[in-house]
């Protein structure tokens, strides 16, 4: 029997190939109009209307310290499920749902700095490229300190 495999929903951010476990993804949406929310952490881009439900959109570029995307580049939404309600991760481009084998997994390398190491669960070594697996709980978190700043 071959090694157990997992499915990941993939997307691209600043040229990097990211993935989140497909079970945690509620849906994937094209660009949605965002209402900005003042006084909160800058990683929160604002609120979007998801068929009558209001959810927060977290900019993954900002969350990972990647630098903002260009004005014209409209972010896509990866809507995540979480115990405390759904939220959206704003990404550059949506990829495929791929299946990876467990034995190609590795913990995030220690040399990986720059890109907020705490945000990554680990790396899958795919034949052509690396798939960076996000820690979805961390990714959906607006840093408390910043949002409480004004409280």
């Amino acid at each position: 029997m071959s090694a157990p495999s997992k499915q990941f929903c993939t997307f691209i951010l600043d040229g990097h190939y990211f993935g989140v476990p497909v079970q945690q993804v509620q849906e994937v949406l094209r660009y949605q109009e965002i209402t900005e929310v003042p006084l909160v952490s800058s990683v929160v881009r604002g609120l979007i209307n998801l068929r009558g439900q209001i959810i927060a959109a977290v900019d993954l570029r900002r969350q990972l310290g990647l630098g903002d995307r260009g004005e014209k580049q409209k972010p896509m939404n990866v809507i995540m499920r979480s115990e405390e309600g759904a939220f959206s991760l704003l990404v550059d481009e949506i990829g495929d749902v791929i299946e990876v084998e467990e034995d190609s997994f590795e913990r995030p390398p220690d040399s990986l700095r720059g890109m907020a190491k705490g945000m990554l669960r680990g790396v899958y070594k795919l034949p052509a490229r690396l798939l960076l697996v996000l820690d979805t709980e961390q990714a959906g978190r607006a840093s408390e300190i910043e949002s409480r700043r004004e409280a």
């Binding site: 109009e33 929310v37 952490s41 979007i48 209001i54 959810i55 978190r141 607006a142 409480r148 004004e150």
Partner: peptide
Amino acid sequence: LGKQIKGVPTFAGATIMGDGRV
């Protein structure tokens, strides 16, 4: 408001306007 925005005392919540925007 979602957990990402909770804790800001200036906002009581959000609503959806007639045009679908928040």
